[in-house]
Design a protein around this nucleic acid. Structure first.
Lengths: 125, 125
DNA sequence: ATAACAATTAAACGATTGCTTAATTAATAA
DNA sequence: TTATTAATTAAGCAATCGTTTAATTGTTAT
């Protein structure tokens, strides 16, 4: 018999032994935590140095794949791989021009996240 | 003879073949990209769903380890492991009270990053 | 002292990540 | 057409990550 919807999750029933003062808030906090569910997906994207750099570069100007490869001193397939992921997240878009494929930012909000992270370091962390 | 400071990085010398229009900006962009160096470290921390949730919970109220384990339905060692990492990044601090160890936020800026990410989704992404 | 509980630590394991190399597609030039 | 260059894709591999289990530390109660 499954009891997934129970108030206390079965596997952790013995934890804390009911003495923790925050026990009364557990249900409330379980709901609260849903507000950030899925949020880490964007952070995962930015959690790679190369991808953060690519997005930052593209916020300056459009660039073709080999430009990025030269600037970041990486192989073409490596860069292309990251661009593919950024594309999947709708953070960049591309336009083919002859042999070259030019990438541009497709999200004007992502740069705010990067700036916010810069502020974080600026505040002495 | 090392040529690290050369205009064209040696391993990618043949890339782009010098035809890309942005070639003149390569040096400028190489400097530009330094502005976001190291930034992905914080994003990596937030790139784990559990850690984002822990930080979000602690922005509400202080919690002991087993509280967090119950709320997130995780094992104590798993939670403890994440708290250790958050501590290493000075994002949380702890205070022992009897058997329990209470964790609190030690960084009032990190929540801004989380809110900014919420905005990102709110804007229809 | 012994027992019980909160928390941490360590070792081990499976899953994921990001790179490399090699092959392939797409577009232009000879 | 063939050759060349830009870019993508696929396969393989090493490194990293997050979890589990088990052992250990620290504190309180009996």
């Amino acid at each position: 018999m499954k009891d997934f919807e129970n108030h206390d999750s079965a596997p952790n029933k013995d934890l804390c032994d009911g003495f923790c003062p925050s026990n009364g808030n557990v249900e409330k906090l379980k709901e609260k935590v849903l507000e950030v569910a899925g949020l880490s997906e964007i952070f995962k994207v930015l959690g790679d140095e190369t991808r953060t750099k690519i997005l930052y570069l593209l916020s300056e100007q459009r660039l073709c794949v080999c430009d990025i490869a030269v600037i970041l001193d990486m192989s073409l397939p490596a860069v292309s791989h990251h661009l593919r992921l950024l594309k999947a997240f709708r953070l960049v878009k591309y336009a083919r021009e002859g042999k070259m494929v030019y990438y541009t930012l497709d999200d004007d909000h992502i740069i705010n996240l990067i700036r916010e992270a810069q502020d974080h370091f600026a505040e002495g962390r």
